[in-house]
Every structure is written in structure tokens, then in C-alpha cells.
Simulated scan of single mutants.
Amino acid sequence: MSIDPSSIPNFGGQPEPHETGPTGPVIPDQDLVKQLLEQMELKYVVDDEGDLAAPWEQFRTYFMFRGEDEQQVFSVRTFYDRPHGIEEKSKLLEQIDDWNRRTLWPKVYTHTHDDGTVRLIGEAQMLIGVGVSLEHFVSSTVSWVRASIEFDKWLVEQLGLEADIDSDGDDKPDDEA
């Protein structure tokens, strides 16, 4: 199965000539996600658990498949690396509640580590076990990646953390900057 490059929203680079893809539902897999990330010109790694991850300077986005058969789920989960103190948690919760009310994805939540640091995690999921349209899968995945980047920029603005962002507003994986 191949991705029609013209179906990828304008994320980076120009679309390539039209290729013919499957006409019915597909069950996405890791190879399809790798192909999509390559066409989006995003670097990725495969972690020790076999999950794909695209690293940015302040966060990393994982592309994971969980479950079996008809219950299989594709999840795009972003771990924001910027640490926040426990005393900031109530302000963070107010901000991410606002984000979660106003946007469809990623839905963001906090995780408090044993040392008291609070980090944020964003997530979007799609049930894929019975198959999905390739176009829907591609457009959703691209939108989720873009929204993960936008959330980080939005949070930086909301919390006045502009010093943490490169002056050029870097939105590429940290290897490509």
C-alpha cells in the first residue's frame, strides 16, 4: 500500500506526482507511518519497545499501535519535555482545560513524577481494527502532528516561556534545525 503524496496536507515540501493507492479500507501499520513521516520530511527513530518517535527539541511524538484484531487502536502521543514545578500544576490545569475545551486534539493531561515535576502529555487516537480510509488516516495523522506542535507554541505563549523557543520559531524535528 502506498500513500498518495498529493493527499498529504502541505506540511513541508511540495507534493509529488499523483500515485494510485488502495480504494477500500486499509489497516495502517508501522511501515505506512514510516512512509508518511518520510514524505512529511520528518526524522524518526524506533525506540526499545518498537514504537516510532519523531523528536523535536522540547517534545517527542510517538506513533503507537495497541490492541488486537477489531480493537486495534492507533495512537499519536506527544510527551512534552519541559518540566514544571508542582506549585505550577493548578495554573497548568487551567491552561490545558482551556485548550481541551477549544480544540479537538491533542487532548492534553498532566503527569506528576515522583520528584514533583509535572510534565504534559497530548494524545489522539483512532480505532483502526476494521480498517480506515487511507486518506482519513493520512489527514488525521498529519493534523495530529501539526496540532501537537501548535499546542507547544500556544502553551509557551500562555505561560510566557518565549525564551525556551528558538528565535526562528523552529517547528522541525531537532535534527533538522
Rank of each mutant, 00 (worst) to 15 (best):
D81V: 02
V26C: 09
T112C: 01
V33L: 02
E49T: 14
R102N: 11
S148R: 04
K107P: 00
V132M: 09
L120H: 06
D31R: 01
P173S: 10
P17T: 07
E88P: 06
N10Y: 14
I165W: 14
R60Q: 11
A147R: 00
Q158D: 07
I3Y: 09
R146P: 01
V156K: 03
V118M: 04
E41A: 12
S139T: 15
F151K: 00
Q35W: 11
D29V: 01
I121L: 04
Q125W: 03
I165F: 02
E176I: 09
V46K: 02
S7Q: 10
H18S: 13
A163G: 12
I3H: 08
E123N: 12
G131E: 12
M126E: 05
V46M: 00
G131M: 05
K91N: 12
D69Q: 09
H113E: 05
N100K: 01
G129N: 08
N10I: 12
T110S: 10
S143N: 09
E150R: 06
D152F: 13
A124R: 10
E94C: 03
R146N: 11
R66N: 12
F11Q: 10
V76Y: 00
R60M: 02
E94I: 03
L104A: 07
E135S: 14
G169V: 07
L120Y: 09
K34S: 04
Q71T: 05
Q125E: 15
D51V: 12
D81G: 06
R119N: 07
V132H: 15
